[in-house]
Simulated scan of single mutants.
Amino acid sequence: MYEESGYPAPAGFGRREVGPEESARAGRLWWDGAADAYQAEHGEFLGDAEFVWCPEGLTEAEAGLLGDLGELRDRRVLEVGGGAGQCGRWLRARGVRQVVSFDLSLRQLQHSRRIDEQTGDRLATVQADAQRLPFADASFDVVFSSFGAFPFVPSADDALAEAGRVLRPGGRLVFSVTHPVRWSFPDDPGEQGFTITQSYFDRRAYVEEDDRGNAVYVEHHHTLGDWVRGISGAGLVLRELVEPEWPEGHERVWGGWGPVRGRMIPGTAIFVADRPQEMSGSR
């Protein structure tokens, strides 16, 4: 199946603890190997310069989670784990002047450059790890991530602390991840996906390994409480938790997301948080 799809094939898989270095190495290697297949499979749905928050198809144009688009045009915006930069490019195409998108995978960034050349909407990109952002404190007004990086880091606290560190007072953080409740169910979009097979509280990572036991793909589970505590610990205030409903007429299947299960249980959680204005601070 993997050979036919173009995605890297693991020798085995399971659940175990994975630290930050091993996780980052696996993420970089897997996404470098999977980027071509991923963009071929999902590129049409994501668009070259569209802002889609989740497999349910909710867009920023519909939701307005980042705030008023007119006000964003003079703000500095950071896209976390942007892949080929589709979301950041959507902002650029609408007049947001300062948008930076970063990703761990060089191959994903090469796809971003390819789309730049095709569309003429150029996006500033950086290769970086969400666990150690190469940006100064309080350097962005908005930080966002559409399923980028946050599902692939072992510590929600550390990743959110980094996002909060680069956010200016009065700034906003918005990110979407797999809805934590989904980790209790198998990754099956059909009827079999309704059966609870593992503990919601089991925080061991899902790991795919090569034939020597090295992690080649890692995805981490954090509960709703973990995300909320991480947001609070980063000095941010949670404003909204969005759980997009499956829209009528949307028949696309994406991994464990699909219309059968999507109409019954949430597949995505989108967190919206703000950094309070500091009385003694200045923008």
Rank of each mutant, 00 (worst) to 15 (best):
A84S: 10
P8N: 11
R261C: 10
T178Q: 12
W246D: 00
R122W: 11
Y200N: 08
P276C: 08
A163K: 00
T178C: 07
R16C: 10
S23L: 10
G281H: 12
G6Y: 12
D226V: 03
V126H: 05
G70N: 15
P244Q: 03
E56N: 15
V181T: 08
R132I: 07
G262T: 07
R204Q: 11
A40V: 08
A124P: 03
E243Q: 14
V253T: 01
V166E: 00
G120K: 08
A130I: 02
S282P: 04
R28Y: 12
F152H: 15
R263V: 10
G164I: 01
G148S: 09
E240R: 15
R283N: 14
R263I: 01
G83M: 07
D157E: 15
E62N: 09
G82T: 07
E17Y: 09
A9N: 08
E4R: 15
L167A: 01
S155A: 07
H222F: 03
F271A: 00
E62K: 13
R172M: 00
A34I: 05
E3G: 13
V96W: 11
D141S: 03
A205G: 07
G171V: 00
S232V: 06
G95Q: 12
V96L: 14
L78T: 02
G12D: 03
Y7S: 08
G6F: 07
S199N: 10
F13N: 14
F147E: 02
E117D: 08
D68S: 13
S232F: 05
D129T: 06
E191Q: 14
G233S: 13
G88D: 00
R182C: 02
V52D: 03
R172W: 00
G225A: 09
L109D: 00
S176V: 03
E17M: 05
F194K: 12
R73N: 06
V253K: 01
F147I: 06
R92L: 08
R25S: 08
R97H: 10
